[in-house]
Nucleic acid binder design. Structure first.
Length: 277
DNA sequence: CCGCGGGCCTGCGCGC
DNA sequence: TGCGCGCAGGCCCGCG
């Protein structure tokens, strides 16, 4: 479930539950996630107070009052649930991490495919951590605009679709929102990044911000899994213009085109050849 | 610099 | 009903 809007939805769900609260105990039931979970993580955060929940790219950061930050990435299939502490019988086979708060609230990290990441670092050294060192610009920051995007695209001999998926360029855009943003900007996913002039770059930058903002407002997209920590579904999947809609009619008024699926860099892209150029 | 193939894992929907 | 297959929201590596 996890592109920027889904991760931001999780962050917003966790913040009121966790901010200012004490961690009682952390249980790590499987250490073999995408990278090994550090053996000292549970002990490092035990008894600490959570000061903030932040997001950088597709990562959730849980800051402690002790200059330590937990780093959580949901991978492809990761979910976060908020509930009450229960017994062993209540746990599912893919509930890998349990964070028990003072007072009985339990945060559960569930991830069938185990592509997720759980790590920690000193808060004041976050930007030098391997997860963050090579990240590009945040598309919802005010500094992100067409001028910036055009500069990033300058001379790049690669299609816009794979350009947008590159986390060292722009962070948080994944396979769904790349297709959706390109449709809104009326740009073909096959167009070379270097062909962006001021007009097209401005359109694309605005489309990216718009799609991500609308998806956050919808509570993210829920395909197989819920996106929200209370178990509710986001509903942006009902607003997809092109994603997973091959063969359907383009929703752009008076366009009349038919949505196509192509494969780029090994991943599906969806677009309307009629209105996206 | 770029695309490709492969890998990491499990689950789901499909056609047979 | 069961089985094999392709596919899936992310990201990383080596190769050519």
């Amino acid at each position: 479930m996890p592109e920027l809007p889904e991760v931001e939805t999780v962050r917003r769900g966790l913040l009121p539950v966790l901010q200012g609260r004490l961690i009682d105990k952390i249980q790590i039931r499987r250490f073999d996630l995408r990278r090994p979970v550090p053996r000292d993580l549970a002990q490092r955060f035990k008894g600490r107070r959570i000061t903030d929940i932040r997001r950088r790219a597709k990562y959730i950061l849980i800051d402690s009052d002790d200059n330590a930050s937990m780093i959580l990435h949901l991978g492809m299939s990761g979910r976060i649930g908020v509930g009450e502490k229960g017994g062993e019988a209540d746990l599912g086979p893919h509930d890998h991490v349990l964070i028990d708060m003072a007072g009985g609230t339990r945060i559960t990290f569930t991830d069938p495919r185990r592509f997720g990441i759980l790590d920690w670092t000193n808060t004041d050294q976050l930007e030098s951590h391997v997860c963050f060192r090579h990240l590009g610009i945040e598309p919802l920051e005010p500094t992100f605009d067409g001028v910036r995007l055009m500069a990033l695209a300058h001379g790049r001999a690669r299609p816009l679709k794979t350009f947008l998926l590159d986390q060292s360029v722009i962070v948080g855009v994944g396979n769904i929102y790349a297709s959706e943003a390109l449709h809104q900007a009326r740009l073909s996913p096959r167009r070379m990044a270097r062909t962006l002039g001021p007009c097209r770059a401005g359109r694309l930058a605005r489309a990216i911000s718009s799609v991500l903002t609308r998806a956050i407002a919808a509570g993210g997209s829920s395909l197989r899994d819920h996106a929200q920590v209370n178990g509710e579904l986001g509903y942006f999947q009902h607003m997809f213009a092109v994603y997973d809609r091959a063969g359907a009619e383009c929703p752009r008024p008076a366009c009349g085109g038919v949505i196509r699926r192509i494969v780029q860099a090994g991943r599906s892209s969806f677009y309307c050849p009629t209105c996206q150029r």
